[in-house]
Amino acid sequence: MDFRLSDDQRAVQTAMRELLAAHFPREKLRQVVDAGEQDQGFDRALWHELGKAGFFSLRLPEKDGGAGLGLPEAVLLFEEAGRALLAGPLVATHLAAGVVPGAAEGTAVVTALDRPGMVGHLAAADAVLLLDGPAPRILRTGGEEALKVLAARPVRSVDPATPLHHIERLSPLPGATPLSDAGDAARLRREAALLTAAEQLGSALRTLEMAVRHVKNRSQFGRPIGAFQAVQHLCARMLVRTELARSSVYAASPAITVSDTWAAKVLSDEAAVRNARDCLQLHGGTGFTWEAEVHLHLKRAWLRLEHWQTPADGEEALAAALLDGSENCSTEIANHPNGAT
């Protein structure tokens, strides 16, 4: 057992951070936010850059143009994406790589749904991955056509960088075709939950960093506010939440067991949302402004929390697992002759 990141994994993480610093700096984030405000188009050039960098094809075999890497590496990429507040249907397009033409290269934009409700980037999408049943389906159409087929109603999104549509029901969709070579939908939903959890983790790490930097610099009563225990303890609890989320997200990625994934999503949702709120609180009045970055983290965290296993879903599933005895504990315990009794 060596739970730490390998040197190769560290390199993947660093490369992604550098790529995003170059292609998605803070000014770009503000542009996306402003464009979203004005209901302007999707940044396909950036999407293509991500494709070229292997963001979507990471887990495809090398013979298919991928990097042949696994979920642990994908988790690190999504953690960085969450840290940078990278916009777009990242999880859906990543899952569609190798299945939907153009997804791997970032020339196609794929969004996804696992139940009726809110879906992001629908108007910009070229295809919609449907993971509501046991077998995945694909709606190979996007834009106006998809909006019509799905009877999607635009809403004013709480997250200015993620346009949302509401879909009342996923009635039988004649246009949707089965995706035979994409594996079963349950596995894809689990992967989607884990990658979303990784984004939440990245966001939680980022808001913790922002909070710590701010309380070291901001002075009141003649000293940095970070010297006051009330502030220190808030920051310490942010770190504890983040470390708990990190342990569970990283543990779920090599194993992708059901309960580890549920735990990862539940705890990283909590870390992202609560850290953003604490970060906002620590920034005082500035934290409540549009200019500050923190509200963007909070809003995106709220959005991710509603996708791919809500806290209610996760908690109910984790509760049920206590009774079925199958995966309620670590594999070590499940395999023990005494079991979990």
Partner: peptide, 14 residues
Amino acid sequence: LGRLNAVFTALWRL
């Protein structure tokens, strides 16, 4: 109880 399951799972990972 479900959330406690998540927390103790994660504490073991920690």
